[in-house]
Design a protein around this nucleic acid. Structure first.
Length: 853
RNA sequence: GGGGACGUGGCGGAACUGGUAGACGCACGGGACUUAAAAUCUCGAGGCUUCGGCCGUGCGGGUUCGACUCCCGCCGUCCCUACCA
């Protein structure tokens, strides 16, 4: 009995696969293409368990599809631009590029130790000018196609570090590094016009059938379509009317006040001459605009003294407030308040004593008795108190009022979206330079294509506050390509989501002189199976959908959707440990005894065990994958990732689970040794196989069918369970059976094949030891023989009045009479029936018999 | 506040479109091997039981011959979202 020598085995097969170029894509002749992609990693330093899970899941798909006869594209690259490189540079004095490439080398080696079936010849790093030059060219095309905008936008400004902060760098209103209170500043920035595609991005979601409903729903809500009307309200004593967007134009007759956002142009116009208003506006700016503090914040307003006139009711004046709950970013930044049918408006009206007039009567209510209490009525009903709308239902009233508004020139039907244009400017060094030049004479001028790429300078000063590109001595000083005069290079770089919006296209032809070869993209795209975390449900996945459309508009390609199938996996979790002083402890600093008490290993103090949470550096509940791979091998780690927890759910990492996986691999190893050392099969021509042999044969073929099905459906945990059942069956099969040597060998062969996608090294080793010349990785997936699945005896459940009383064995396809007769012979059935006569029989052939007495 | 997911043994989880609840594994207990331990093998196991059975899928109802599965009403946990007019 020997132990599975994983170290030798894993190293050997990794080398063989690499030497033979086994996983090169596009070498499959006329095999159909299949593109499997996991979201590419940010090279942060070392891989974490989330990566292990993500890439293991993808590798199962890739290897399975490959065995099924597909030419599989399974590439890997690096999402290599981003803030952490700049931070590391400042903290350690290493240039961002060097830091990034060192991390890539480290992580590449770690991934290689996992035995992933990746085509490494297609590796791409987004920080490579050979990659980002194409992005710059695309941007210029987008610019020419009218898909780019330059407009003012708010940023978080750190006055000490002289830099723009990302939202996640603002902690409690202060810069994370300097601790200085963050200011809001307006800066001219570049935007990609994703809103051009709002409707299309929304409508096409319906056709993404292989995406999780959850993700589609999140995108739908993010796009946030509202159908309604734009209405102009004349303002007393002013020429310009107030424009309002509403989804409930039907409730126009219920209006009792108007409100505008604190930063609405009208409010800004009035504030300078009204100190009390100015103070109110400032107060609003101070309360958190995005926190859940909003929930607690009361609805307050400031009466401007102005009033709007009701568009349909002469003489009705609607006082105009500046209100803290109206957002400038949505609609027109102004609303009409209809308290009876909107909860926020109701709270506001109660506070400022505005009338609450119901205009929609719920079904079953009477006009004289129906009143609004503490809750606004938002349901369907019949219009009342509404002039020409009276008697209509809500949808008809909406339609009717819009017609009327349009006729009178007071407004029109309108659809708005919550989706905003995508701001891509970042005032950062470690990103792709935006290829434009600002000329005092000619304005904004695109960098001529011949001058691409605009490469990041390497001689930068990082210690100093501010953007290194901004204070680099020469980089930004250029001559205008149009007039030849002195001009300034754009010093902003792209949001890193731009790189990740098209990398999947680059993988199709990573060495091409153009961004991608059309033929390659046509062959591989869209990605058949994309796999990643649900945290990218909106941004990355929506940007990529937009980017693909924008590329289509510019003639790069011919389709809209980059990802045909999407799978979002759960997180890898671990218990947390915290001592009395509140310090987090790493799992390897703690020991748990049998009573479930955890103690620190250094001084034995007791530590509290917290619930299992996503592995994170801050809670120190991480496990280093390399340590696991070192100690147990990649296959053990992979098998553990696939066992037990369904891939979409969170997985709790446990030492016991790793142990279990490791033990199973050894069990397979021993089973192999035992079976292959059985004496050669005896001559048994013409002999009938034993019932056990028939049964095992059936199990083998049933398992092939079931495992294939479960892998297809991403039920990898069930696939593992089925494989284990097969090995249990092989272990239990009587060795004395005359058919044993041949049959066990057949079962073992199938077992090894089914294990291939999950634990490729062990499987490849055993495959070769079974005497196969070809690699398992090059071997076709087994197929279940339907003839060997046939059973001639079935177990039928027998119920009396719906309760299970017995199970009986019947020939397959037995009729109801035979089944009933056999059931009546069972003691438990007779007893349950007692003296009662059977009133009704329900018979599901080969499955169940229910006798109703 | 809105949206979503989930709730099954001590634990992770099975149970296809309503048809034998608890597959597979972890932990556990008994036994074998061993001087001993580890490893391995093997057997056992939802709970209760007067050994006939009875009760069991968060709780309470309902539909059905039959409900983890469908319907109604609750409770709980987690995730996402945040005044969207």
């Amino acid at each position: 009995m020997s132990r599975y020598p994983f170290r030798d085995v894993e190293a050997r097969w990794q080398r063989v696969w690499e030497e033979r170029g086994t996983f090169r894509a596009g070498t499959g002749g006329d095999r159909p293409p299949y593109y499997v992609l996991e979201m590419f990693p940010y090279p942060s330093g070392r891989i974490h368990m989330g990566h292990v899970r993500n890439y293991t899941l993808g590798d199962v798909v890739a290897r399975f599809k490959r065995a099924q006869g597909f030419d599989v594209l399974h590439p890997m690259g690096w999402d290599a631009f981003g803030l952490p490189a700049e931070n590391a540079a400042m903290a350690k004095g290493v240039p961002p590029a060097r830091w990034t490439y060192a991390n890539i080398d480290e992580m590449r080696a770690q991934f290689k130790s996992m035995g992933l079936s990746l085509d490494w010849s297609r590796e791409v790093a987004t920080c490579d000018p050979a990659y980002y030059r194409h992005e710059q060219a695309m941007f210029l095309d987008f610019l020419a196609a009218g898909l780019v905008d330059r407009k003012e936008s708010w940023v978080n400004w750190d006055p000490v570090d002289q830099t723009v902060l990302a939202n996640e760098q603002v902690i409690d209103g202060r810069g994370w590094r300097s601790g200085a209170p963050v200011e809001r500043r307006k800066l001219a920035q570049w935007f990609l016009r994703i809103t051009e595609y709002s409707e299309d991005l929304l409508a096409a979601l319906e056709r993404l059938e292989r995406w999780p409903d959850k993700v589609r729903l999140m995108q739908e809500r993010w796009i946030g379509k509202s159908v309604g009307a734009r209405v102009r309200f004349p303002i007393e004593g002013r020429d310009e009317p107030l424009e309002v967007f509403t989804t409930r134009p039907d409730t126009l007759f219920g209006a009792s006040f108007m409100a505008i956002a604190p930063d609405h142009p009208l409010s800004r116009e009035l504030a300078p001459s009204d100190p009390r208003l100015a103070a109110f506006v400032e107060e609003c700016a101070r309360t958190g605009t995005s926190e859940e503090a909003i929930e607690r914040a009361e609805k307050v307003g400031f009466d401007t003294g102005l009033a709007c006139l009701h568009p349909f009711e002469d003489g009705v004046r609607l006082p105009l407030y500046v209100a803290n709950f109206v957002l400038m970013e949505y609609g027109t930044g102004a609303i009409f308040g209809c308290p009876a049918h909107d909860q926020r408006d109701l709270e506001f009206a109660r506070r400022y004593d505005r009338p609450v007039t119901p205009v929609v009567l719920p079904p079953g209510e009477d006009p004289p008795t129906f009143t609004i209490g503490e809750e606004a009525y938002v349901g369907e009903g019949t219009l009342i108190n509404s002039g020409f709308l009276d008697g209509l239902d809500v949808p008809s009233a909406k339609q009717r009022v819009i017609e009327e508004l349009e006729q009178r020139g007071l407004g029109h039907g309108q659809t708005t979206y919550r989706l905003r244009d995508w701001g891509v400017s970042r005032q950062r060094y470690w990103g792709c330079p935006i290829p434009v030049i600002h000329c005092p004479a000619c304005g904004t001028v695109p960098v001529p294509r011949a001058q691409l790429p605009v490469v990041l300078p390497e001689d930068i000063e990082l210690g100093r506050p501010g953007n290194p590109l901004e204070h680099h001595p020469t980089w930004k000083h250029v001559t205008c390509p149009t007039c030849g005069g002195a001009a300034r290079r754009e010093t902003d770089t792209f949001d890193t989501f731009v790189e990740s919006s098209w990398y999947f296209l680059r993988f199709c032809s990573p060495a091409a002189a153009e961004p991608f070869e059309r033929a390659a993209v046509e062959r591989w795209m869209p990605v058949d199976q994309y796999i990643g975390g649900v945290e990218h449900a909106v941004l990355h996945l929506l940007y990529s959908r937009f980017f693909t459309r924008a590329l289509r508009k510019c003639g790069y390609l011919d389709f809209d959707e980059p990802f045909a199938g999407l799978f979002t996996q759960g997180m890898v979790c671990h218990k947390t440990y915290r001592d009395a002083a509140g310090n987090w402890l790493q799992p390897d600093e703690v020991a748990e005894d049998e009573a479930g008490v955890a103690r620190a290993l250094d001084d034995g103090r007791e530590v509290a065990i917290g619930r299992s949470e996503k592995m994170s550096k801050s809670k120190r509940n991480t496990i280093d994958p390399s340590a696991t791979i070192e100690a147990y091998g990649a296959d053990t780690a992979r098998l553990f990732m696939l066992s037990d927890s369904p891939p979409e759910r969170d997985l709790e990492w446990t030492e016991a689970g790793i142990d279990g996986a490791w033990r199973y691999l050894n069990r397979v190893w021993r089973l192999f040794e035992e079976i292959t050392s059985l004496p050669a099969p005896a001559e048994q021509a013409g002999r009938e196989p034993s019932p056990e042999a028939v049964e095992l044969e059936r199990t083998i073929h049933r398992t092939i069918a079931a495992v294939s099905e479960e892998i297809e459906r991403f039920h990898f945990n069930k696939a593992v369970a089925l494989v284990r059942e097969l090995s249990n069956a092989l272990e239990a099969f009587p060795r004395r059976d005359p058919g044993a040597p041949a049959l066990l060998r057949e079962g073992l062969t199938v077992l090894v094949q089914l294990l291939g996608p999950m634990v490729p090294h062990l499987a490849e080793e055993l495959w070769s030891r079974l005497g196969h010349q070809a690699l398992l990785a090059d071997t076709a997936w087994p197929t279940a023989d339907p003839r060997r699945l046939v059973v001639d005896e079935v177990t039928v459940a027998v119920q009396v009045n719906g309760k299970l009383r017995a199970t009986i064995t019947l020939p397959r396809g037995a009729d109801q009479g035979a089944a009933t007769e056999a059931a009546r012979a069972e003691g438990t059935v007779r007893r349950a029936l007692a003296e009662k006569s059977i009133r009704r029989v329900i018979y599901v052939p080969d499955k169940l018999l229910n006798l109703v007495a």
